[in-house]
Design a protein around this nucleic acid. Structure first.
Lengths: 342, 342
DNA sequence: CTCCCTGATGCTCATCCGAGCAATAGACGC
DNA sequence: GCGTCTATTGCTCGGATGAGCATCAGGGAG
């Protein structure tokens, strides 16, 4: 601790003169009766101690440090953390994260020939945020069932179709329920030629893009009428932290209810775990736990989220390491900007 | 409007790379396929548009720009605006402002031979924040009556005494009520030799330091039992925005109730208006109106306040000019730092 | 008292960066 | 198409700044 009180006050004063007024370090030096090197050191100290906080306030701003920390901590291939500075409500934040996901997709080089997508509020926003022509000829495959029983917001297939259309590609949808009454029905549906081919295609996708839902009454699966609040409560009792591609998982990243899981149509979690590129888009206070389950258990290789969630994920110091082999400090989507220039 | 959307995104990205990572502009240039000058311009634009916000987070931090703006707008000799960044509640903010006032006093060169002070919660905090030896031999004079009828927090005289003691000086107190029942009583009290001599000394003080109170049930004059909430309500009805040295004033800076004013013991507002150095210490959401009355009507030459109040004072674009002759951009308390080094 | 160690200070030098200027590319009217 | 006008780009140059080093003050241990 070499920070004497007087030095700290000097730091503050120097920082004010440097950043608010903008005097040179030399000028500050003579004003404060210090040498310009001392001033430089005070400023460095002020920045290092966090007295000077530099914040980038913009809907599209990202928190690069948190991104790298996430990447390294959980062995992700990449991470995108959007700043929540100046965000009014949770839904605006979600839109920003969706926007970031769209930016990320757009910047992906090479674009995935086949992209498996889930559905839901977040995915809808991502689709909406994608610019027309974000890629050329991507095949988009819906990876889990979803026939919204409630109106509004378009159904699950619309998301996949929209993403495909904007890339001048083709969509392969699953116009079937997300969860069936009986495991047997599910198996027979999967045996259907059309459905089977889509699922097959899904399992071979070169990349996946999906979101995660909360385990509460607010779940999209409740809103869509597949589950009742009571059923969700039971799942929570069994340790569910949220759902991924329609499957409710616990903190260990595995389904909490084997029976329910057997009735859920779509790609299995193993496929995500094995995927080369699995992009999770998760944001909001309620989703910290699911997000943790995703990264801790290697269910995604790329995490796109907000800074609060990221901070939560980085909170605990030593966690069990991710199941993914660490990808090292491999640099990620720094080609994002290409899009902006195009 | 030369800010195309792509340029804005580039600005954001460049700012991230520059401030979060800290690459040189050159490195950013090659990473983003831009020349380093372009990067420089993007960064300048980002700062100028407020995309990059640099904030100094420290209890003692000041908002120098607001200070200068206040100074120039209202023709003040000086202004101190403390940052409210990271402040939990209003009382913490008040303590910070009091601290700033103490810093300001300490840094005053030359120290005023005689200092007239008022009393109240804020003044108490200022006194408490002053370091022992903040000056040598200042004569402190209480400028308005105040015998707290309620316990706790020490009475009005204690404030003056504390300030004086810490400067190894002498105190001249007014151990009499702030407001009397009858104007006649007030006049006779003023004729008292001891009281008269203090008031005389007060009127000749080389500087004044005072706060201002709200016109509401929360007024110190209500707490001290000099006024009832009903009486204050009547004053508010007459346009009172708050009290200064015990006198309730309207937005025009004049007493709203002549009769009440005639019963109030202490320095008149004219003395403040004429003073070479009149330091007002005002902070808190409820005091914006009083603060405005002070600066608009030249009741102080130096304003020490919080940034919210300052912003409120700077809100309206063209206001009637201050009654004080503009003091120009005369530099103020930049010697503050001497204290820190001593 | 002397020596040595540690941390702070002031300095040199290479780099970084911004102001200002010339060249260039677009935009527009003719 | 052509001239002109303006916004943008890339550059020169000198000041501003940070890294690294020599020096110095102070503070034990012997």
């Amino acid at each position: 601790m070499s920070l004497s009180d007087s030095d700290e006050l000097l730091s503050v004063r120097a920082a004010e003169l440097y950043y608010d007024e903008n005097l040179t370090q030399d000028e500050i030096g003579s004003k404060l009766h210090l040498t310009r090197w001392k001033v430089g050191r005070l400023l460095a100290q002020a920045r290092q101690q966090g007295i000077v906080r530099i914040e980038i306030v913009h809907p599209r701003a990202r928190r690069v440090l948190a991104e790298r920390a996430l990447q390294q901590r959980y062995g992700l291939k990449d991470a995108v953390v959007v700043s929540s500075a100046g965000v009014a409500d949770d839904s605006e934040l979600q839109r920003r994260v969706a926007q970031a996901a769209a930016d990320f997709l757009t910047a992906m080089r090479p674009a995935p020939p086949t992209l498996g997508v889930s559905w839901g509020r977040t995915m809808h926003d991502v689709a909406a945020s994608l610019p027309i022509g974000w890629a050329r000829g991507v095949g988009v495959v819906q990876i889990n069932g979803g026939l919204s029983l409630t109106p509004g917001g378009g159904n699950a297939a619309a998301t996949a179709i929209s993403i495909a259309q904007k890339a001048f590609g083709s969509a392969h949808v699953l116009p079937i329920p997300a969860i069936l009454e009986h495991a047997e029905t599910k198996r027979s549906i999967e045996r259907d030629r059309a459905v089977g081919s889509v699922l097959d295609r899904a399992s071979k996708a070169s990349a996946y893009l999906f979101s995660a839902g909360v385990a509460s009454d607010d779940s999209a699966l409740v809103h869509s009428g597949y589950l009742t609040p009571d059923e969700v409560a039971v799942l929570v009792g069994k340790g569910a932290v949220g759902d991924v591609v329609g499957r409710f998982i616990g903190a260990d990243g595995h389904p909490v209810d084997a029976e329910l899981d057997a009735r859920t149509v779509g790609l299995g979690l193993a496929a995500l775990r094995a995927a080369e590129t699995a992009i999770a888009v998760v944001s909001g206070t309620g989703k910290h736990e699911v997000a943790r389950a995703l990264v801790v258990n290697g269910l995604c290789t790329i995490m796109i989220t907000d800074d609060h969630t990221a901070d939560a994920l980085l909170q605990q110091q030593a966690e069990a390491g991710a199941t993914r082999p660490a990808a090292g400090a491999k640099k990620g989507s720094n080609a994002l900007i290409e899009e902006a220039m195009a």
